[in-house]
Amino acid sequence: MKPFKIPESVLVVIHTPQQEVLLLERADHPGFWQSVTGSRHTPDEALVDTAAREVFEETGLAASAADFRDWEVSNVYDIYPAWRARYAPGVTRNTEHVFSLCVPQACVVTLSPREHTAWQWLSWLEAADQCFSASNAEAVLLLPQFMA
């Protein structure tokens, strides 16, 4: 049996210096666009290590912990009912920690086909409009503030 997911995750806004943002389309929900997200594998896994692992797994982009910026922003939200079975019984909320990763320019990424079917680089405002998750859209809208 697969272990339950830990209800603590990262959201990584991958962007360029020109504020282009990478979005990925979910394989299990076509039309749902998002930034890189993922849960800790163990309770003691450092959040920045979770961010680096998830970025590599979902995009093929290799980055070290020093490449990430921890925005020190956390969102607590209700887990979508469709995904609650992945968590222990009674777990209904997740805490998401926001990070960013600046890459030199928009680039080709290698998707994990199990998780995503398409990718696109958009201006930060267009990306925010495309995000299905309110917390993801809010994070993208904060990008100019965190780049200043």
Rank of each mutant, 00 (worst) to 15 (best):
L61S: 01
N136Y: 05
M1E: 07
R69D: 06
V108Y: 04
D28R: 12
C107F: 00
P104K: 04
T92H: 06
S39M: 10
V73T: 12
G38Y: 07
L61N: 01
G31H: 08
P7K: 04
K2W: 08
L23A: 07
D28A: 11
A46R: 14
A52I: 01
A82V: 13
D28Q: 11
L141M: 14
A106M: 04
L22R: 07
E45A: 03
E58P: 03
S9P: 02
A137C: 09
F132V: 05
A27R: 03
L101F: 06
A137W: 11
G60L: 02
V12W: 03
D28S: 12
F68R: 08
F4L: 01
D129N: 14
A106H: 03
R84M: 11
L101N: 02
Q18V: 00
V21C: 12
V109P: 10
T42W: 09
R40S: 12
T50K: 05
V55Y: 00
T117H: 11
T117I: 15
D78E: 13
A62C: 03
R86W: 14
W124N: 12
Q34T: 13
V48K: 08
S9M: 09
T110W: 05
L111C: 08
P113K: 06
E72Y: 04
D44I: 13
P113F: 09
S112I: 05
L142A: 15
M1K: 07
Q105M: 14
A134S: 08
D28G: 05
A139Y: 12
G90A: 13
Y87S: 12
R26I: 02
G60F: 01
D67K: 04
Q105Y: 12
R69Y: 07
D28T: 08
W83S: 10
Q120S: 15
T117F: 06
P144M: 07
S64P: 01
L22A: 11
P3L: 04
H29F: 11
V91M: 03
A148N: 11
Q105D: 14
E96V: 15
M147E: 08
P113Q: 07
T117G: 13
E96G: 09
L22Y: 10
F99W: 08
P81G: 07
A65P: 08
G60N: 00
D49G: 04
L11E: 08
Q145N: 05
A127I: 03
E72K: 15
P43R: 13
I79C: 02
S123G: 15
E126Y: 07
E25K: 03
A66N: 12
R114M: 13
V36P: 02
T42E: 07
S133I: 02
V103E: 04
S133K: 10
D70P: 00
A106D: 05
H116D: 14
A137E: 09
C131Y: 04
F68M: 07
W83K: 11
A148I: 09
V13H: 05
C102V: 15
L23G: 04
S112Y: 10
